[in-house]
Nucleic acid binder design. Structure first.
Lengths: 167, 167
DNA sequence: AGACAGATACGAGTGGTTTGCAATAAGGAA
DNA sequence: TTCCTTATTGCAAACCACTCGTATCTGTCT
């Protein structure tokens, strides 16, 4: 079946975790802001306020965020944080496997937590986006594997088409 | 970002069409350069040399072409033809349904004859591109339709993943 | 041949992202 | 605590893939 091809570790799906007071978590627990920051530190990275604020924004609203949107969110707390810093941190978090980005159309990329990875159907007419469970791609995954030895990653680019209303 | 080679991929699947000598075709026959030019004229457009050269480039090598690649090809014959003219003509030809464009990765879009439309699998590692017959997407199409009423168009964005070698 | 609209070359602008660099600051050592 | 190293930041500029405004040119119709 289709799996993440991003170089991250495994994530248990659907875990929800109280944030609570800032307590240093014990392990490689990438399901909280502080857990990820531990991971960052462990990889030789440094815990900075832009990093923490960015993670906060990502964890607070687990939807699809553009870099610009995240910057705006972060800048509510710290207006000096530059868009290029956001991009660099997003790259870093993606490298660590904490987040992934997807392209839903011709606009900017969108970022979300890797744990919430899924496919996307986007209507070419009205732009409506549907989050598609991986099970839908099972047949395609098998066919691609059988015919070409190709392992699909259905998360990265949206599948375009027409939604029920527009078709 | 890894370098990708969209250009020069061979056209393997689907319709293959003899070009034959340049003979003005009789009807809406979009399978030859002159046939398309007839269509252009019929739509109120004008037959210009950049249009003809661009079509020649598209018909001569039926692979995936970037705008830049096509410009280079056209400019071999007529160096003054500007990239913006290529873009405007590609738009026009797409509007007429003669060509389509696809996004195979993070680089520029690629254009090819609409008659040869197909899905694409692109390896995230090595960039290899596989042309996927539409039949492969049948299961996904049915599932998307059944679950969301969504009609997929599997041609526009590539399906990323890992090829047999890189997996 | 003349008129008119569509097409062109050129250059400048745009959106989204990346990069070079000097200044700053995190985190370990002393 | 202070020092040191080097990761990170802010800023400006560059970058890529287009897109657009405009004056000029050229098919096409008459």
């Amino acid at each position: 079946m289709t799996e993440r091809n991003y170089e991250g570790q495994e994530y248990t799906a659907g875990v929800s975790k109280p944030l609570g007071p800032v307590v240093v978590s014990d392990a490689d627990d990438a399901t909280t802001v502080e857990g990820v920051l531990d991971l960052v530190r462990k990889q030789g990275g440094r815990v900075t306020s832009s990093r923490r604020l960015l993670l906060r924004a990502l964890f607070d609203s687990k939807g699809h965020h553009t870099a610009e949107g995240l910057a705006a969110e972060v800048q509510k707390q710290a207006p000096d944080i530059h868009l290029s810093t956001i991009y660099r941190n997003l790259d870093e978090l993606e490298r660590l496997g904490v987040i992934v980005h997807a392209h839903l159309g011709h606009g900017p990329a969108t970022y979300h937590l890797a744990a919430a990875a899924h496919g996307h159907f986007v209507c070419e007419e009205c732009g409506q986006m549907i989050e598609a469970p991986d099970t839908l791609f099972k047949g395609l995954a098998q066919a691609a594997k059988a015919q070409f030895g190709f392992t699909i990653d259905p998360h990265h680019f949206a599948m375009l088409g027409r939604c029920a209303n527009c078709a």
